[in-house]
């Protein structure tokens, strides 16, 4: 049986892990390589590193982080943030990542999904979607709109339409982030996650808002999401991966036992 995955997200800025609320006010909380090692030992199923480094000249730091992580951690991990072309993808994969998450660049140039999938395989290409609830209109029938540039810029594309298009272009997975829920610890956007995970045949990762194991239970119960992304609930030591998995397992949700 396929387990539901718990994925920890590490936002990396200039080599340090940070965490913000609703995409703003990031504070540094630790060394991403050490944190990745700790979560691996706790039994996390997968890791994601988002490079949110502001200045482009410091971009190479993420490659060093990826290389260090890859040496000691034998579970899959993805890298996202600022990846704009096949060359960027190549460098991140060469450094040891399994998957690449593309977001803004995919909206600006949807062909990047296609060419990335053709070159490295669909399993490598994760479409990151930053989504905000808006009024339902004929142009935005789902009531959810795609935003880019770290959640700052609306692009007038309906979230469901974009998910389906990404599937057709060859994306292997969708990481669905609710801007409204991000960093609130109030739970995932269940309506949005259900909507997108049922609209596409590829796996969907629920993201944004997780504060307690209950929130993960809720999203797995109410949607077809294959994975849930968490950050602050573990970064601040409120829960360990084992505690979260134990809670889900008790509720009958299949998780990977760490044995």
């Amino acid at each position: 049986m396929l387990s539901k995955r718990i994925i920890i997200c590490l936002d990396v800025r200039e080599g340090k892990t940070t965490k913000g609320v609703k995409f703003k006010g990031n504070i540094d909380i630790g060394d991403p390589v050490a944190m990745a090692g700790e979560y691996y030992r706790q039994g996390v199923d997968e890791l994601v590193f988002y490079d949110i480094t502001a200045s482009s000249d410091k971009r190479d730091i993420i490659i060093d982080v990826v290389e260090e992580v890859a040496k000691n951690i034998f579970i899959p991990f993805s890298v996202g943030g600022g990846i704009r072309c096949l060359d960027d993808m190549h460098r991140v994969l060469d450094a040891g990542a399994e998957k690449i998450s593309i977001n803004t660049a995919a909206v600006q140039n949807p062909d990047l999904i296609y060419s990335g999938a053709r070159t490295f395989g669909s399993q490598c290409i994760v479409l990151g979607m930053d989504v905000k609830k808006v009024n339902k209109t004929p142009a935005m029938p789902s009531g959810y709109e795609i935003y880019v540039n770290g959640g700052r810029t609306p692009v007038g594309i309906d979230a469901v339409e974009w998910a389906k298009k990404a599937l057709d272009l060859g994306a292997g997975e969708i990481c669905l982030n609710s801007i409204d829920a991000d960093g609130t610890n109030a739970g995932y956007d269940l309506v949005l996650t259900s909507l997108i995970s049922r609209a596409v045949s590829i796996p969907v990762i629920a993201s944004g808002g997780a504060g307690t194991p209950e929130h993960l239970k809720d999203v797995f119960r109410t949607s077809d999401a294959g994975a849930a992304l968490i950050a602050s609930m573990v970064h601040y030591g409120h829960y360990t991966v084992a505690q979260i998995k134990k809670c889900l397992s008790k509720e009958g949700i299949p998780v990977r036992e760490f044995i």
């Binding site: 049986m1 396929l2 387990s3 539901k4 995955r5 199923d45 669909s122 399993q123 292997g172 997975e173 045949s201 590829i202 796996p203 077809d224 294959g226 994975a227 990977r256």
Partner: peptide, 8 residues
Amino acid sequence: KVPHMGWS
């Protein structure tokens, strides 16, 4: 869902 992705 295809691909089969995750831990089994």
